[in-house]
């Protein structure tokens, strides 16, 4: 970990801690997140942690550029990585099936695995939520086993159903809302990722962990899952 402070905008600083994506970064990123939230307090407008950086958007009515820079440096002095248990662990039940996950056989074949072995591989790791972006509540998670890493679709789908679970390279994610998308879809979860109409907040937060669990169609339906095949929606 090596702290570098960069100007991002009139009232925003990029705090760079790492250069490459690694699961072990997140303990440091989340420790920095907590320290910066505490130090900036009411002068903080937004704080966006990502794989290797944090973007600090501060209120320049309360702090000058020089004060903000000094505050970041003092807040992150003697930083120690956060406890690995700090983020929440979410167990996400997924109905892995070709009807709702059309790339399931393709990803399996590419990896030289049976569909069952692919599912087991996808469920065998507690994934780290690196960052949220692309859509509200959309968590970029990783890293998936290199054997099942699969590049994005050449042509993104125009419509990917909410709850779709996908893989792109060594990352995995769940689509919170119906949206376009180019990830390889393996299945679907009935767990709501973001119910804004019910005044909820997105389920996942940076630094959380996610464990996928394979369930049957009947369990998926009992949980209120929508079994409409993916391709029929497009």
């Amino acid at each position: 970990m090596k702290l570098r402070l960069e100007t991002a905008a009139m009232d925003a600083l990029t705090v760079r801690l790492f250069d490459a994506i690694d699961e072990s970064n997140m303990a440091w990123i989340m420790a920095a997140d907590e320290a910066l939230r505490r130090a900036f307090d009411h002068a903080l407008i937004d704080l966006i942690p990502s794989y290797t950086t944090l973007l600090v958007h501060y209120d320049c009515q309360k702090l000058t550029f020089a004060q903000a820079t000094t505050l970041v440096r003092s807040a992150l002095r003697n930083l120690t990585p956060a406890d690995a248990q700090q983020g929440q662990l979410h167990e996400i039940p997924v109905w892995y099936d070709e009807r709702v996950g059309p790339e399931l056989p393709i990803v399996a074949q590419r990896a030289g695995l049976s569909v069952e072995a692919l599912i087991e591989r996808h469920c065998s790791h507690d994934y780290c939520v690196f960052a949220l972006g692309f859509a509200p509540g959309y968590g970029f998670m990783g890293l998936v086993d290199e054997a099942i890493a699969t590049p994005r679709l050449k042509t993104p789908r125009r419509r990917v159903a909410a709850g779709s679970v996908g893989i792109a390279d060594r990352q995995t994610a769940i689509y919170p809302l119906l949206s376009p998308g180019g990830w390889n879809i393996l299945g679907r979860t009935a767990v709501p990722l973001f119910e804004h109409a019910k005044r909820g907040e997105p389920l996942l937060r940076p630094g959380d962990k996610v464990r996928f669990k394979a369930i049957s169609q009947s369990e998926f339906e009992a949980a209120g899952g929508d079994t409409t095949p993916l391709e029929e929606r497009s």
Binding site: A8, I48, Y51, L54, H57, F140
Partner: peptide, 28 residues
């Protein structure tokens, strides 16, 4: 590596033509 984007960011994609990121920009 994807990182947080501030309002007004002048982003330069591979074609070299700037995109100014406005209020509804992606967060990273």
């Amino acid at each position: 590596v994807s990182e947080g984007i501030p309002l007004g960011a002048v982003q330069i994609p591979p074609d070299g033509q700037p995109i100014i990121l406005m209020n509804d920009r992606q967060t990273i």
